[in-house]
Amino acid sequence: MSRLIGAELLKLRTTRTGVALIASVVGIVVLVSALATFTGDFDSDEFNTVDLLGISGFAQPFALVLGILAVTSEFRHGTITPTLIAAPGRGRLLAAKLAANGLAGVLLGVVAVAVCSAIVLLGLSARGIETGLASGDVARVVAGQVVAGGLWAALGVGVGALIGNQVGAIVGALGWLFLVENLLRIVPGLGDQVEKYGINGASNGLGNLESQNTGEVLGQVGGGLLLAAYAVAFLLAGLLVLRSRDVTT
């Protein structure tokens, strides 16, 4: 199993996709967190350091895409055939992809939260603004963001295995997250449930602090467990599809 994980890590390192995703995350997080930190109006009541640290959450859709690509690019380029000829166990392949890309997702989370908290904390201190956070709070936000990176990548691996088609999986997943869930949130009665228990909601809970949480989302542990449950559900469904699938590309 460790060999297969090694092979998956090698796949990640030997194309430009992984580097491009990390560079994109760093670029966006630097830009957005610097703009927010240095131009924000912190005299208002809206000021919230946790929200600023939440900018590292920009890593999450990239982690999702990373996980999706891990499976779908094999179908897109047909490398699934030599991959399965070398190691025919499809469950083991999916497990190896989960481990390698979950790790890569964690790395994306680490990079994003490191860059983001450095800019936010240094920026605020340079402007002489109190963060209003204890160091334990910062640690909890950082931990939440790092775990979220891994879980989003795991979710992506599941979605990729379930859908298989690269464009379909990416458009479907991002469409659901950025469009459908947001639209559902304005539906009366349903909206609050979606905001709390939707995939975005679960992730928001994971990246938030209990002390800041006014009940729209779950707590960190609850949110993390719910996000993990989504990932497991998609991974199991993806496993069923992958195992029965005729590989003809």
Partner: peptide, 19 residues
């Protein structure tokens, strides 16, 4: 089948690694 962005050597290495 090959990933167009991966070198031939790395393609073999990734298959070899798994075995």
């Amino acid at each position: 089948m090959l990933h167009p962005g991966r070198s031939g050597r790395n393609h073999l290495r990734m298959l070899a690694q798994g075995a």
